[in-house]
Design a protein around this nucleic acid. Structure first.
Lengths: 149, 149
DNA sequence: AAAGATTGACTCATCAATCTTC
DNA sequence: GAAGATTGATGAGTCAATCTTT
């Protein structure tokens, strides 16, 4: 995903942004896959569940993972097949499905976390000085929150 | 694609980076599609060709688009089917295939460019002041170039 | 009828194997 | 045999339609 012809500073920032995203996410996915056999998307799902206290509704999981509902259904099929999560009909509202981490899911997450965190440090944070980290967090957080809404 | 549990500044920057990427690229793709009927991936391919002087080998196009060779073959099939590019056997080395922009391809590119550039300005650059733009371009350019290898 | 989740048809990516030319 | 490109099988995402529960 590149950009266009003119070369304003904003456009240069955008292109660098795209290139950095592509190269770093590919590297992180490859490392996690090779060292722990876990795709980055699976890791993300486990993180979301853990941060939510171990349990989420399909609907909410879809939002957090930036996936469509149907993609989340199929994704949950795979994670459930691998024994990392469980599905359960909601008690209050039986239209809904609750997804929760299994013991194996928690174990996979804790096994993978150091590799992933090391990767973020090594392939991303390490290239930024403290001021740049703060600025990126603030500036991109602003971009994300405005555009999400 | 989210990240993990600890909340160092580097990790906060990484999360903001991921969120910003997801929301902005989705918006840009949707706008380009709605207003010009062109997927962002197609636009990118046309830009790469134009910047290369209108002609590239499949091999090189694959590298620039960060796609596998086979994905590039199928992608070129679609673009060729739509009349935006042409394939031609290389003169010097007849193993290779040269891809070039057609007049329709150039027209589609020039038709789409203003929409895309406006989108980058509106959904990305606008949220950054001049100093932030410079810093992002420099810092992320560094990340990308080191990680690209 | 609307909300939550799933399924069907389709698009687009990847790896491994194959074909052609060097 | 190796390089460039393509094809086959498969994985994973989307939208539209469907099923169940409210």
């Amino acid at each position: 995903v590149a950009a266009a012809e003119a070369d304003s500073e904003g456009l240069r920032a955008w292109r660098a942004f795209l290139e950095a995203h592509a190269s770093v996410t590919r590297t992180l996915d490859r490392e996690l896959q090779e060292e722990r056999g876990l795709p980055l998307t699976w890791y993300d799902a486990l993180v979301q569940l853990e941060e939510a206290g171990g349990e989420l509704r399909m609907f909410t999981l879809a939002e957090r993972l930036l996936l469509s509902r149907s993609a989340t259904t199929r994704f949950a099929d795979r994670l459930e097949g691998a024994g990392l999560i469980e599905r359960r009909r909601c008690d209050g509202d039986r239209r809904g499905t609750e997804v929760s981490l299994t013991a194996a899911g928690r174990a996979a997450l804790h096994d993978a976390a150091p590799v992933h965190l090391r990767g973020i440090e090594e392939h991303f944070s390490r290239h930024l000085d403290p001021a740049e980290r703060r600025l990126l967090a603030a500036a991109l957080g602003r971009v994300a929150s405005v555009e999400r809404g």
